[in-house]
């Protein structure tokens, strides 16, 4: 756990481009919301391999978004159910239901549909927010945070030693 947080800080403090980190966060959100063991999960893993997204950030944020999904699953499922039963969309769903891929990916399930649509809706906001936060962190927060006594005490702790070992690795 400490190692993962240390790695995360290392990445944030590194020269990795903010867009790559933001992309990793977005992909983590997609994988976390849609489950890594689903069709979309496999697709996102493939994107992870192909796109220059940071793996450390992805793994750390996958845990965060998986937890968030569990927290909001009822809301997400209700949202999916609402979409699937929306009269104006029923004909579209019926048409899509004829396609094998639609049934195979279980998009007729309210939770699966809710997860997918929610995660797609959140792509742009999460990307923008992540990008902005990373840039802000690097510009202002980094030196500001380091001035805190708590940070200085952290630097003297075992955690900081791990951080250094990660950084040097």
């Amino acid at each position: 756990m400490f190692t993962l947080i240390a790695k995360l800080l290392n990445v944030l403090n590194s020269d990795s481009e903010p867009k790559h980190l933001a992309l990793a966060i977005v992909l983590a959100m997609l994988a976390g919301f849609n489950s890594i063991m689903s069709v979309f999960g496999v697709f996102i893993l493939l994107l992870m391999i192909v796109l220059r997204a940071n793996l450390t950030v992805f793994i750390a944020m996958l845990a965060v978004f998986s937890g968030l999904k569990l927290l909001f699953i009822t809301f997400i499922s209700d949202f999916g159910g609402y979409l699937l039963q929306l009269p104006s969309l029923v004909s579209t769903w019926t048409e899509l239901y004829q396609a094998t891929w639609f049934r195979f990916s279980e998009l007729y399930n309210s939770a699966v549909m809710g997860q997918l649509v929610s995660s797609i809706i959140l792509i742009v906001p999460i990307y923008a927010l992540s990008y902005w936060l990373i840039v802000k962190y690097r510009l202002a927060m980094k030196h500001f945070v380091e001035r805190f006594k708590i940070v200085q005490s952290l630097k003297a702790s075992k955690f900081y030693q791990i951080y250094l070992s990660v950084q040097s690795a």
Binding site: I73, S77, G80, G81, L84, Q85, V90, W93, T94, Y97, Q98, Y108, N109, S110, A111, V112, M113, G114
Partner: peptide, 13 residues
């Protein structure tokens, strides 16, 4: 094990 609800649509085929 199903999370959520399966909303089944009529299949043409």
């Amino acid at each position: 094990v199903i999370v959520g609800e399966n909303i089944v649509f009529p299949l043409n085929d």
